[in-house]
Amino acid sequence: MSILELQLLKGFFLGLVEGVTEFIPVSSTGHLILIGEWINFASTESKVFEVVIQLGAILAIIWLFRERLIRLVRGSLVERDPVELSFLRNLIIAFLPAAVIGAIFIKSIKSLFFHPGVVAITLFVGGLIMLWVERKRAVPLQPTATKLEQISWKQALGVGFAQCLAMIPGTSRSGATIIGGMVAGIERKTATEFSFFLAIPTMLGAAVYDSYKHFGELSQADMLTILVGFVAAFLSALLVVRAVLAFVSKHTYRAFAWYRIVLSLFVAYFVF
């Protein structure tokens, strides 16, 4: 097997990992860093691969929820439906904190935190927080938002600030936004759906920004590897998203929390 073929195989494998982990609260970036270290994967020093292949997972979300997205666009821009305008407003509000903070600090974050040791710590802490939130939610409490259209701008803003924590690898963007939404009073399945929709502008913006910023650093082999990872992420995410929604409609996130804790201890054993 040639060096290029081996690199493409690694890219495909990491694309599968991205698609499977992006929309469950276990941190896709953390897994990409850990597995990338394990298989000695090297795309570019800028880590653009990990960000850009997320477009594959986002394309899966756009495809699966295309009818709801069309209704959102038509209702907001054409029909001026107050319900759709409110939903669009909430997505913008939730998107802005990460967009602003990311634009200012993302270079420093990548240089300081993209390391297996950081992933181990954030996986562990995030798992404990998830267990705590699920325990608090076990107490009978009526969520104030059980549908996407019922989410308030204050709840959306809370989700937006929670999303900022996900810039640190191992935190999990979906985990931060879902748990943040639950803490704000959004029902678990609704918080998960809102996290999926919020992922579209957030991850799309990050991927476009990184591609533009580091395009000159990419070799032809890098771009081919990214394309392979993109396709793998799209295909695997198509299978995972519906399964996640079906799971959270009947179960809590405790299983994912324990997975994070066990994985963090495993990683810490080899890192520290």
Rank of each mutant, 00 (worst) to 15 (best):
Leu157Asp: 00
Gly56Ile: 10
Met1Trp: 07
Val240Asp: 04
Arg188Thr: 12
Val248Trp: 03
Ala103Glu: 00
Thr146Cys: 03
Phe266Ser: 05
Ile178Gln: 12
Ile70Gln: 06
Phe12Leu: 15
Thr146Tyr: 01
Leu59Phe: 15
Ile226Pro: 01
Gln163Met: 12
Phe234Met: 08
Leu88Ala: 11
Leu239Arg: 14
Phe41Lys: 04
Gln155Trp: 09
Ile226Thr: 04
Gly216Ala: 09
Lys107Ser: 02
Glu193Met: 09
Ala120Gln: 05
Gly216Trp: 04
Leu123Lys: 07
Phe197Glu: 07
Phe247Ile: 07
Gly170Leu: 12
Glu193Thr: 12
Val183Leu: 11
Asp210His: 05
Ala191Gly: 15
Gly102His: 01
Gly126Leu: 01
Gly15Cys: 15
His251Cys: 07
Thr177Gly: 13
Tyr259Val: 09
Val271Gly: 02
Met203Thr: 06
Leu245Pro: 09
Thr144Phe: 14
Ala207Val: 11
Ser108Arg: 06
Phe105Thr: 00
Gly75Ala: 08
Val159Leu: 13
Leu204Glu: 13
Phe13Glu: 14
Gln163Thr: 08
Ile93Val: 09
Ile53Val: 15
Phe234Pro: 01
Leu238Lys: 09
Ile168Met: 04
Ile62Thr: 01
Ser249Ile: 13
Val262Gly: 04
Ala246Thr: 08
Leu91Tyr: 12
Pro201Cys: 11
Leu227Gly: 12
Ser76Asn: 01
Gly126Cys: 05
Ile3Cys: 07
Ile39Arg: 03
Lys107Met: 03
Phe41Ala: 02
Val78Ala: 04
Val241Cys: 12
Ile35Val: 14
Ile93Gly: 05
Gln155Glu: 13
Thr190Pro: 12
Ile35Thr: 04
Phe194Leu: 09
Thr171Arg: 11
Ile121His: 10
Arg80Tyr: 10
Val262Pro: 09
Leu131Phe: 00
Ser2Leu: 05
Ser195Glu: 03
Pro201Asp: 06
Arg137Phe: 01
Thr144Val: 14
Arg89Gly: 04
Val231Cys: 14
Asn90Tyr: 13
Arg71Gly: 02
Gln163Cys: 15
Glu187Met: 09
Ala103Asp: 05
Ser195Asn: 01
Phe95Met: 08
Val271Asn: 15
Thr252Tyr: 06
Ala206Arg: 01
Tyr253Met: 13
Ile92Thr: 13
Ser236Asn: 10
Gln142Ile: 15
Ala99Pro: 00
